[in-house]
Write a protein that binds this DNA or RNA. Structure first.
Length: 850
RNA sequence: GCGGGUGUGGCGGAAUGGUAGACGCCGGGGACUUAAAAUCCCCUGAUCCUAUAGAUCGUGUGGGUUCGAGUCCCACCACCCGCACCA
């Protein structure tokens, strides 16, 4: 730790004086004042326009980290700014409290997941309070509260009623370490998103939410999300994966029909084989033959990781079956192929080697015919194929009646003929799958269903909700504690009264976060939410969180909102009007041979080099990457706040880096922020009631800053707002006392109040105010003061700057040209050359062309 | 492979087609002080130079459009992210 940091500790013990702001006293004082006054309690019963500012609620892992601080500081500035602008602001906080880590803790530390979660929430809430966030804590809840998940169960039953929920046997992603099913979205590179274990395929009875019913709607809706990052919209679009093509049947030589799906019906005359997935019924029917069985086994072995797929060789097995081409009637071989996926399309394809790279590689290997049916130009119909497929655009060739047609027309023509002939139809295929939500875990929302031998699957009657989790569970053995609990699952069938069993699966935690924003907006006891309140607050005006939720959470939340609107709960389609994905907080890494990674607090920086505090050896300074426990490059917010106060940390979070990019944490940076807190404190102290007189240039800068900072905040360009505040601060410091200077000081006080609320309140009170600054309005600006009366004109010759001159605003082109030519520097540059043309941009520049 | 993003001083980054490097950090020099901390002031892209002046170069690379390009267009390079045997 650097000497300055040590000095800070002493500083905090020095009483607050005119020249020193003491956050250790002020922070708590104002946090209590806001609490007591209910300053940030949202009230829907007034005429003010409403604004809902929301940050993605945290998982209560134990400690707040810098990423949270950055995320919530941005939201906090927006919430406080909106309030200053006359909006009634809803800015709530809660806890995404179900999930695996609680169960892992239960296994490792022998604590109940609920107790572990509750104590984490308590600790993290205290941390958030210390940062002074303008949150409406009256609406706080945790998703593990029975009231919350009980309402979730009710919504689940409503969705079941409406046919949006399915129970079916399905091949699922099974995580052998967490011993649970995972959604496709939770499988990353073939591994479980939490455990990192290689995911296996299993067939299980599962509950599904029919998100695919909304595929088209979810895709179309992206078009309306004007204030979402294009990147996120694209990721969702790709994930939903709409593709249009033709589904048709091949007549097989064994008498059957094989449905295939293709997006390129225009290339049908280039088809030279047909291939099915290893687990396709046609392949399975042949599994009696030992050779086929062996091949199918071989196909299953291949890894599913990206690297494995990249290098995986295309394998095929040629069956004795042939398929008849629908137009030429030619028999084509049917193969079993490892690259055909059972769960996309029909699990079978027509192979067109000339115009699909995979088919090309496959055909080359198994010596199947490769014909050109698309060419760049009709005259190139007989051009030989190269050593790659040609998947691009062109015209149809060697294709009978399609010859000469564009790819697009060719597609339409084949689809039309297939439909007219009754052997196929144009279809849409989606990449998106239904959302499997069953989890064989304890710490989640119990699925409110009962299995009865006589009545089948029976929903739990709503008056029996919530179905709560049993408290007495053990985590000694792997698997689902609900399943092996002695009594919990045994119950009476609500229909026949006979003996029955509760569903022991719980809901995927992503269901908890799919509607929490609705519960924040209204919290009646007897219903999940109130439609009138929803109408007042929704949609969320600003939603801020990490890019890692671009698909999972954000797609699910959009789906739930649509589904609930679909069943008539309210009239909101999109939950989040604007979305902002903030960058990560990063830090340099330190590594020392055998000792491995060192944390920043174990390292002393000296110029270019770094040394271990313990032992003094030189340490290797590594890349600046996301703060993570494993690399030890973390900085604990609590320690920083204790040293520098909440406002310095908040200011750091907003400074320098644009909010969507990564923010490198540095000791020097936070010290600079602390210095600025103190600098402002001294400036605020110079507010002087007795000062008189006008300082027009300073007043003008203040008015301009009021407008510019507001624009920057609204654009979430906090780094620019910060820079402008620095500029106005410097100008104000230099100015002599005047009424204008007092105005500038007050403007600064108000402008920094969303960012450094404690300092601002303290200074505000010291200036004699008895109301809270948090309730004050954004400063007014005078339009007349925005306009300069003198401007600086750049004078260029040969495209280079030669001189600058000061001219009255609005000076005529002729005057500017004359002034420019009169410049000694310009004349020297011209050196007698003939002026051919002079370009004058009023109030900006003069460019002389010779 | 497909899709997207980024590239500007030592560092983070500013810049409606119009003075590139605002603002912050680092660094250097100075003032104040017995000394230190804190604070304040000045300098700080590179090169040349006859040095309070001036010139040239400079926003990943190469072209183009323009009176004028970090910004627009074309081609390329590097890095980062997402998806991926999706027919």
């Amino acid at each position: 730790m650097r000497p300055l940091a040590l000095a800070m500790k002493r500083v905090s013990e020095i009483p607050m004086t005119d020249t020193r702001f003491d956050p250790s006293k002020a922070d708590g004082r104002w946090q209590r004042a806001w609490d007591k006054a209910g300053t940030f309690t949202a009230d829907s019963n007034n005429e003010k326009p409403k604004s809902y500012v929301l940050e993605m609620f945290p998982y209560p892992s134990g400690r707040i980290h810098m990423g949270h601080v950055r995320n919530y500081t941005m939201g906090d500035v927006l919430a406080r700014y909106k309030k200053m602008r006359g909006f009634e602001v809803l800015h709530p906080m809660g806890w995404d409290a179900f999930g695996m880590p609680a169960e892992n803790a239960a296994m490792e530390k022998k604590v109940h997941p609920g107790a572990w979660t509750r104590s984490n929430i308590e600790a993290m809430k205290a941390q958030l309070k210390r940062i002074g966030f303008a949150l409406d804590w009256t609406r706080e809840f945790a998703t593990c509260d029975p009231e919350y998940y009980g309402h979730e169960q009710a919504l689940f039953l409503d969705m079941y009623e409406a046919g949006l929920i399915d129970r079916r046997s399905s091949e699922v992603n099974w995580d052998p370490v967490d011993m649970t099913v995972l959604a496709n979205e939770q499988v990353i590179d073939g591994k479980g998103w939490r455990s990192g274990a290689e995911v296996e395929k299993r067939k299980l009875d599962q509950w599904f939410l029919k998100i695919t019913d909304f595929a088209e709607d979810l895709l179309d809706g992206l078009g309306d999300l004007k204030d979402w990052p294009d990147k996120v919209k694209l990721m969702q679009e790709n994930w939903i994966g709409k593709s249009q093509g033709l589904e048709f049947g091949f007549s097989l030589s064994n008498g059957g029909t094989l449905p295939v799906y293709t997006t390129r019906p225009d290339t049908i005359f280039g088809a030279s084989f047909v291939a099915v997935a290893a687990d396709h019924p046609v392949a399975q029917a042949l599994a009696g033959e030992p050779e086929v069985a062996a091949f199918i086994e071989e196909c299953k072995k291949g890894g599913t990781t990206a690297a494995a797929l990249e290098t995986a060789e295309k394998l095929g097995y040629r069956t004795s079956i042939t398929a008849k081409h629908p137009f030429t009637g030619e028999p084509m071989p049917l193969l079993i192929a490892n690259f055909v996926l059972m769960d996309y399309g029909t699990g079978a394809i027509m192979g067109v080697p000339g115009h699909d790279q995979r088919d090309f590689e496959f055909a080359t290997k198994y010596e199947l015919p490769i014909t050109r049916v698309i060419a760049r130009d009709f005259s190139e119909a007989s051009a030989p194929m190269g050593d790659e497929a040609e998947p691009g655009d062109g015209v149809c060739v060697n294709s009978d009646f399609l010859d000469g047609m564009s790819v697009e027309d060719g597609k339409a023509e084949i689809i039309k003929r297939a439909e007219d002939g009754g052997w196929g139809e144009g279809t849409t295929v989606w990449r998106l799958r239904d959302w499997g939500i069953s989890r064989q875990r304890y710490w989640g929302t119990p699925i409110p269903f009962i299995h009865c031998d006589a009545c089948g699957i029976v929903p739990v009657p709503k008056d029996q909700l919530p179905v709560t989790l049993p408290e007495d569970v053990d985590f000694e053995t792997p698997g689902n504690p609900l399943e092996r609990h002695a009594t919990w699952k045994h119950c009476a069938c609500p229909k026949c009264g006979g003996e029955a069993r509760r569903e022991t699966d719980t809901l995927d935690t992503f269901t908890n976060s799919s509607w929490y924003f609705l519960r924040f907006a209204s919290q009646p006891d007897d219903a999940p939410f109130d439609a009138d309140e929803i109408a007042k607050w929704m949609p969320v005006e600003h939603y801020i969180g990490g890019i890692e939720h671009a698909i999972l959470h954000l797609l699910y939340a959009r789906f739930w909102t649509r589904a609930l609107a679909h069943i008539g709960k309210f009239d909101v389609k999109e939950p989040f009007a604007s979305l902002f994905t903030q960058g990560m907080v990063t830090h340099e890494t330190y590594r020392l041979g055998e000792r491995g990674w060192l944390s920043p607090s174990e390292v002393r920086i000296d110029g270019e080099k770094a040394f271990a505090l313990e032992g003094g050896e030189e340490v290797e300074r590594g890349r600046v990457i996301k703060m993570s426990k494993s690399k030890k490059n973390v900085v604990d917010p609590d320690n920083i706040i204790e040293q520098y106060g909440a406002d310095a940390v908040r200011w750091f979070m907003l400074s320098d880096s644009p909010p969507e990019r990564d923010l490198p944490w540095s000791e020097a940076g936070i010290e600079g922020c602390y210095r600025f807190v103190q600098r402002l404190w001294r400036l605020f102290d110079q507010f002087d009631d007795s000062a008189a007189g006008e300082d027009k240039p300073l007043a003008r800068r203040a008015h301009q800053a009021i407008v510019a900072v507001a624009e920057d905040i609204e654009a979430l360009s906090f780094n620019k707002a910060v820079a402008r505040i620095y500029e106005l601060t410097a100008a104000t410091e230099k100015a002599a006392p005047s009424e204008s200077r007092n105005f500038a000081i007050r403007a600064l006080l108000h402008m920094v109040s969303p960012m450094m609320p404690h300092l601002a309140e303290e200074a505000h009170a010291k200036m004699g105010a008895d109301a809270l600054l948090a309730d004050a309005a954004w400063p007014e600006h005078d339009k007349a003061m925005l306009v300069e009366d003198e401007v600086t004109i750049a004078v260029q010759h040969k495209g280079k700057l030669r001189d600058t001159l000061t001219a009255p605003k609005g000076a005529s082109k002729e005057d500017l040209e004359a002034m420019a030519l009169a410049s000694e520097k310009v004349q020297r540059s011209l050196d007698g050359a003939e002026v051919r043309k002079v370009i004058v941009v009023p109030d900006r520049l003069v460019n002389i062309v010779t």
